[in-house]
Amino acid sequence: MFKRAFFHGLAASVLAAIVGIIYNRIYFFATEADFSKVLNIGSITGISVMVCMLATFIYFGLATWLKKTGEIVFNLLFSIISFACVMIPISISLPLSIKTPELFPGLAVPMVFFPALAWYTLKPLFTGSNR
């Protein structure tokens, strides 16, 4: 059932966003580096929802297509893509008004794993047939 997958994705996006916002605040207090032009409550929430909704569609598609191994393939794919996304904050060029781009990967690299972590964390609550 797509409904279950949808609520799983929605709950994961909320959890990933909350964790991301909390980590963003902790990182700011620890380093005093202000990346609010790039990562703020709005963008963190938006990215979390976008990634988790995309994951919902991919999960549902794989679970429907590969009935036995769909979830295994999805988990593997989600982990690999999350790991590959580490390159995004490392290679991105920030606005020049941000004076400490060296500290940006320290903030953004852990965040790329939050949607996947949230998805896996909440998975037991959404077990059952998703087809």
Binding site: I90, S91, I92, S93, L94, P95, L96, I98, K99, T100, P101, E102, L103, F104, P105
Partner: peptide, 10 residues
């Protein structure tokens, strides 16, 4: 120097 990217700055 600030290129907007920490790796490039280094």
């Amino acid at each position: 120097i600030n290129t907007g990217n920490g790796m490039k700055n280094t």
